[in-house]
């Protein structure tokens, strides 16, 4: 689905050891599997079921999502920046699709 677009807000630079705040949002309907369409048939569940953020390959933050997470799942978390590196984000859809994004944080 072309309409699914991840967005990440992370600082471009940080000082070593600084705690920074990362905000992520992905446009996704998070269909809960509880709703019914006009004919009374259940709309099948389709949600993002896993989100992970890694820094230079090391896990920073991960989340297992259930249908009770709102549409367009938003996460805000914090991390300590030890060095210059790449913060990689990954969202896993119920249908097997994986959406990714990357941000480089430079330690000045």
């Amino acid at each position: 689905m072309a309409s699914i677009k991840p967005r990440v807000k992370a600082p471009k630079t940080a000082s070593a050891g600084e705690v920074v705040s990362i905000k992520t949002l992905i446009s996704h309907p998070m269909e809960s599997g509880q709703r019914k369409d006009k004919d009374g048939a259940t709309i099948p569940r389709q949600i993002i079921n896993k989100f992970t953020a890694t820094f230079n390959g090391a896990m920073v933050f991960a989340c297992d999502l259930e249908p009770s997470v709102s549409a367009n799942p938003y996460f805000e978390f914090q991390m300590t920046v030890p060095e210059t590196g790449v913060l990689a984000f990954e969202w896993v859809d119920d249908d097997g699709s994986i959406y990714t994004d990357e941000k480089t944080i430079t330690v000045a």
Binding site: T54, M59, A62, C63, L65, F75, F77
Partner: peptide
């Protein structure tokens, strides 16, 4: 169940999100 957050060594044990009630 709503969500389970996991924190790595670099992560700070806090998270904020939006949920359905």
């Amino acid at each position: 169940g709503v969500a389970t957050f996991h924190f790595g060594p670099l992560g700070v044990a806090m998270a904020s999100t939006r949920i359905r009630l």
